[in-house]
Design a protein around this nucleic acid. Structure first.
Length: 602
RNA sequence: GCCGACAUAGCUCAGUUGGCUAGAGCAGCUGAUUUGUAAUCAGCAGGCCCGGGGUUCAAAUCCUCGUGUCGGCACCA
């Protein structure tokens, strides 16, 4: 293994720079450490640029950094480049790498650099962002690039890489700017790591909820129905119904009352709430006679109307309303993604109306609720506090107070959180619960939002101890976020092998022959009595085939019944999760299913 | 919305440089078979080749405008 850079004052310094400045530090070897990969991938990005430049001589280059997963380079060519060109670029990269060009570094003034890259308007844009007087140039063979480094000593060290994706990306990440071409790639120090990475990507693809959702008949989308409007199929319907009923109980236990607001409300109300002005572009509007109505993108206004239905005493607070609220939002076409981003979805939404002195306890109670649910599903999650966005209602002071209240609740209970600056809802700051899916993407699911603004806008009140009118505080919260997204994430999380308590079907019953169908039906009825769904595989197919089909549905448990079982009043079990086969008496079997269904601790 | 790619049977996919009646496997239907733990056999049916418009003697194939999907960007439960 060879030394590729050094660690100096916690910075990675490449050998070229170290030599020039006479710096000494711990050697960084070419392995799969974070530091080594940083250098390797950065140089691989340059090698890719070199290959692109040789294949497309008019290419202009913007920036080519390393990211969490690999590296990318943004550039522009007159010729269009597509997915199919990646192989060609990879090949060119390899042929350059074989020449083992050393990577040389030298420093020139910014003026000289401007002259050097005078034909590259993207590099000029990069130069404009650099405050320093002098800039460094890295050179390998004929190819030179403006870069801060660090880089490998030679491109000959680059062998195990792959170009993974091609896409467009806005210059500087701003949608007002021109669109550049971006190619993503990955690189490792050895073949085994590259293979492991590619295998992991393949596994992630296998778990993709869109693929599994189709195979398992959970949901579908249809062109003629419209983009972003999911259709729930029977199996998905059963899964979802289980989740809904489990969650219903959990809410009731915690003092939430089920309510329901209308699907659309008069636009005047959305003007009062501020949605019209701040969220209108994401809303759908329609007219009934002369009046304009807005289809709800959130459920809060409906719940406010429930609150307003009667007078409230300070003794009654907190009041908690919940609803599986169907909402519609105009998402951009490019944002749509299976069940993860849709235009119609159902939130497990609730609003807590409470006194100011109850804020902390209420927030902690919700955080605890979240933890119960996420740990039941064995999810890793983290919490973020999101602060005031650009578009917002309410004074700075109110925002400051409510943001601080969220932080206090978290701090005094020693809960860890990160800050997402400007990520709040327009009516208040929030705590977002982000869970990680199978491919390592983070998704915002649950959210806890503190709101002083809507109570003010709707002039909500309750009677205080002195019979005075006091404005309540509203806490908006959703734990799953939406059933659509959450079920999508669950599907990938379990790779379709759902635990018994939410699986679309709990048991597949396979009668050996025609004569065993009757017993199968009896068993199925008994299962319904203990709230378990089953499916009988009695088609005119071989036993082997029916077992195979049952296995492929990913049902947690298959029971086979034939003469023996009927004679002894038993079932032969195939447990898909534990991959075991064994016999149980019918009674024991039903008890086992019941236990597994109740393995929920919301 | 933006950049790029893609769209053929319910599903997964073939379909030569534009050229005869668009194929296969699975699923479905009909028979035969009645099965003891991952695919029994035979037959049948199934297509406005995503939708308009165009080029051509001829279009699933080329062009164009939509719609939808995929990978990102930008935006968000």
């Amino acid at each position: 293994m060879s030394e590729i850079a050094i660690k100096y004052n916690d910075n990675i310094v490449d050998l070229q720079t170290a030599q020039e400045l006479g710096l000494k530090g711990d050697a960084i070897e070419l392995d799969n450490s974070v530091e080594a990969l940083e250098v390797l991938r950065h140089s691989t990005a340059h090698l890719m640029a070199q290959a692109i430049k040789s294949l497309y001589p008019d290419a202009e280059f913007y920036v080519g950094p390393t990211v969490k997963e690999g590296f990318y380079y943004d550039f522009k060519t007159s010729e269009e480049i597509g997915q199919g060109d990646l192989k060609k670029i990879e090949k060119q990269m390899l042929s350059f790498a074989k020449k083992k060009y050393p990577i040389e570094r030298y420093v020139i003034s910014k003026e000289e650099a401007r002259e050097k890259f005078k034909d590259d308007h993207l590099k000029q844009a990069v130069l404009n962002m650099i405050p320093d007087e002098d800039v460094s140039i890295y050179k390998q063979g004929e190819f030179e690039d403006l870069c801060r480094g660090p880089h490998l000593p030679s491109i000959g060290l680059i062998r195990y890489f792959k170009l993974t994706k091609i896409s467009g990306a806005y210059l500087g990440g701003n949608s007002k700017n021109e669109m550049l071409t971006r190619i993503y790639g990955i690189a490792f120090a050895d073949k085994a790591f590259l293979k492991a990475y590619m295998d992991m990507m393949a596994e992630a693809e296998k778990r993709d909820h869109r693929k599994l959702g189709n195979e398992m008949k959970l949901f579908t989308f249809r062109e003629e129905v419209g983009a972003g409007f999911p259709i729930w199929l029977p199996a998905g319907g059963r899964l979802r119904a289980r989740l809904e009923s489990l969650l219903f109980k959990a809410h009731r236990k915690r003092g939430y009352e089920p309510v329901r607001g209308p699907e659309m409300l008069r636009s005047d109300l959305w003007k009062t709430s501020g949605h019209y002005q701040n969220y209108g572009e994401n809303m759908y509007f329609t007219h009934i006679d002369e009046l304009e109505f807005g289809v709800k993108p959130m459920n809060c206004v409906g719940h406010i109307k429930v609150y307003e239905d009667e007078l409230h005493s300070y003794r009654d607070l907190p009041i908690k309303y919940f609803e599986y609220g169907v909402v519609h939002r105009h998402e951009l076409t490019g944002a749509l993604h299976g069940l993860f981003r849709v235009r119609e979805f159902t939130q497990d939404d609730a609003h807590i109306f409470c006194r100011a002195d109850q804020i902390e306890e209420q927030i902690i109670e919700v955080v605890d609720f979240v933890d119960k649910i996420m740990s039941t599903f064995a999810f890793d999650y983290k919490m973020m506090i999101s602060t005031r966005p650009d578009k917002a209602v309410g004074s700075d002071e109110v925002w400051e107070i409510s943001t601080q209240a969220l932080k206090n609740a978290m701090d005094t209970n020693e809960l860890a959180y990160e800050i997402d600056e400007g990520g709040g809802a327009f009516y208040g700051p929030k705590i977002d619960i982000k869970i990680t899916d199978a491919i390592g993407r983070e998704w915002q699911c649950g959210t806890i939002q503190l709101d002083f603004n809507l109570p003010e806008r709707f002039k909500l009140e309750y009677n205080g101890e002195e019979n005075n009118k006091i404005q309540p505080v509203m806490i908006h919260r959703a734990i799953l976020g939406s059933f659509e997204r959450f079920i999508g994430i669950l599907t990938e999380h379990y790779a379709g092998e759902f635990p018994m308590f939410i699986a679309p079907t709990q048991v597949a019953i396979v009668p050996v022959a025609e004569s065993h169908k009757e017993y199968a039906k009896e068993l199925s009825d008994k299962l319904i009595d203990i709230n378990a769904d089953s499916e009988i595989y009695a088609k005119n197919d071989s036993l082997n085939k029916r077992i195979r089909i049952a296995e492929k549905t990913r049902v947690p448990m298959i029971v086979v019944i034939g003469d023996e079982e009927i004679a002894n009043n038993t079932v032969a079990i195939r447990d898909r999760r534990t991959r075991e086969q064994y016999n149980l008496s019918e009674e024991e079997f039903l008890k086992l299913i019941q236990t597994k269904i109740n393995e929920v601790n919301f």
